[in-house]
Design a protein around this nucleic acid. Structure first.
Lengths: 350, 350
DNA sequence: CGCCGAAATCTAAGCGCTTAGATTCCGGGC
DNA sequence: GCCCGGAATCTAAGCGCTTAGATTTCGGCG
């Protein structure tokens, strides 16, 4: 690993100029075959690997995009392999991919298809969001993962797609998903098929555009049915204690609603847990629904009625959006679809 | 997104030299507080984001590491969101994380903890492995994901960890896992508890070090029991058709072994499928075992007996290895543990 | 008030690559 | 054999940043 060979070394060894070396790699047709072979042979002999930083600097582009995510994956444990063995064997580990995992997969797939490298960053410490932003041609971020101020700054420099965010935020774009109508259709099902009247909404009402759309769809359906819309019980996904705290007073009060409509599957699964611990039957005594369609909803007991959104497509679309120059182009929202399982009371549905 | 502001712009606006701007960001203590504030204010006003390519070039390091993986995630479909909705709702999608997914998660976690950015690449087209290698301070790759020649070349330039590869390969290092003893212990269980005598091994015998260790452990146990070791039925993980092809002649022959010992869980799950289709009862007529401990093994029917390896720890360890300068340091192999479920005939075990 | 050393700041030289534009090479036509 | 034009190659100027080493600034002291 002595000194890393550069174009100069290769050029010298091949007896050509550095420009020719560069051309041999970047624009092979511009160089005579014989020369090219000489250059490539010299490069191979020296173990030459082009320095992408230098290339990026010279070209002004890096050929990579960035994905900046929430850090709720953040682990508390120390990563002891023995612990992990135990956890995995017994099922304590984070088993099933969550929303962000599937979106990330979509991003990965689309990047691969387009020959882009993907740079991952997350959390608050370094690499902070600008650290990622400084080395990519475009940035995808989850709403709330990075400070709005930083995003606005970055958006002046490179395209930014903010998942779950506002369409109108400073210079950034977003992937539209039918959050509102998905939630509305779900609630309509609860109203019509089950005759539920007493609704309780669990989750953020308006922290991000995505969440306010969901709550909006919920409110729309209730209003159309002539029901009053009460404020949500505030809770955050991936923060189990907040969901438990939101639920505690309701359980203590002893009077259950007909149904808990949750802003996300992750929260709904916690609700299911809490109710089970309290000895309350779902859907016998109270129904529960989620939103997203993460894998775990299918395997919970009872299986969770939810609204499926195409998470992978969200990731892919984000990449496409990033690469499209036409900023103004009308974007078709990605479809969502209520998935009726047992937790709403449709006991025999698949 | 006009021209991206640079240190020069910030320096001019703040009325200092570019060096001072650089210091204000990189070595704040070297600059008077008042100056620093002026610089940061100017940077904020201009929307300055440091160009990491330039930094990387100047410093000779990038602060990122790369992960180059196999591309069996590669999708055939076109990413139609409607298809995805359907697939996810019914369970056709790639539901559970596989070996590589979990290793990747380990890598991500460790990078986050250490403040490193992570660059992802895969597949054969661009970004090829050197494309990733050229912009990181270290590279992790799955054995077989990249041509050995390219890896050797890269290893002359930056540290390389090759997962599942040889310890001794040209300049690269690897994460040791108890593949051999894990497999041996599993086979010993099959010999002792179930009295199996007629073994059939499905999978690679020796394509990578990891696989030859597994086959080696299998062979050791059989030999110690005085049994002959037959060559494996060649099959590749994540290439379902190869596994089916390996199995076909056995089923056609009509004479089943006592047990199919598979090199990986992915292959074992395919074997389970094939046997079910053929109307053969597992473990009644034949036992099946896997290796890795991926999530899906727990949910198959019957649940799969396998050898659990700490996949996340493999990823974390790879990152650590990359950052350690002491190349020679003895590495403790990561532990593995047979997990006995129903597919070997232990019907009532958890 | 001038001098001194440390602290703060600046100057300038790269880092390794790309790419206009200049130069050289080469084969064909006369 | 010479001239010509396009192809091949080269020269050299950056890209935006870091960082030795030079220079300036500044407060304290005699």
């Amino acid at each position: 690993m002595a000194r890393r060979p550069t174009v100069y070394d290769v050029a010298e060894r091949a007896g050509v100029s550095i420009a020719t070396v560069s051309f041999a790699f970047a624009q092979p047709e511009r160089v005579r075959k014989k020369t090219r072979d000489t250059v490539l042979a010299a490069a191979a002999a020296l173990g030459y690997v082009p320095n992408v930083s230098a290339r990026g600097l010279a070209k002004g582009r890096t050929g990579a995009i960035g994905l900046y995510s929430l850090s709720y994956l953040l682990d508390s444990d120390d990563g002891d392999p023995a612990d992990e063995l135990r956890a995995q064997a017994t099922g304590d580990a984070g088993l099933f991919p969550l929303y962000a995992d599937l979106v990330q997969r979509g991003v990965e797939l689309e990047c691969r298809r387009r020959g882009l490298a993907l740079m991952l960053g997350s959390g608050t410490g370094p690499p902070a969001v600008v650290d990622v932003a400084g080395r990519v041609d475009g940035l995808i971020t989850f709403a709330g993962a990075a400070p709005a101020e930083a995003l606005a700054r970055i958006a002046r420099r490179i395209p930014v797609v903010e998942l779950g965010g506002e369409t109108t935020a400073a210079g950034t774009r977003t992937v539209l998903v039918e959050n509102r109508s998905g939630m509305r259709r779900l609630v309509e099902h609860l109203l019509r098929e089950h005759g539920h009247r007493r609704f309780s909404y669990i989750g953020e009402e308006s922290v991000t555009a995505e969440f306010s759309e969901r709550f909006g769809g919920y409110a729309e359906a209730l209003t159309a049915a002539g029901l009053a819309v009460h404020p949500s019980l505030p809770s955050k996904p991936a923060r189990e204690e907040t969901t438990r705290a939101a639920l505690a007073p309701v359980l203590a009060g002893g009077r259950l609603p007909d149904v808990f409509v949750c802003a996300t599957d992750q929260e709904a699964l916690v609700v299911l847990d809490v109710l089970r611990e309290a000895g309350i039957d779902v859907p016998g005594q109270v129904a529960v629904t989620g939103f997203d369609g993460i894998v775990a909803t299918r395997l919970s007991s009872p299986p969770l009625t939810t609204v499926q959104q195409p998470m992978e497509a969200v990731g892919r679309t984000a990449v496409r959006l990033l690469l499209e120059t036409e900023t103004g182009e009308a974007q078709v929202p990605l479809p969502t679809e209520p998935v009726i399982r047992a937790s709403c009371g449709c006991l025999f549905s698949k």
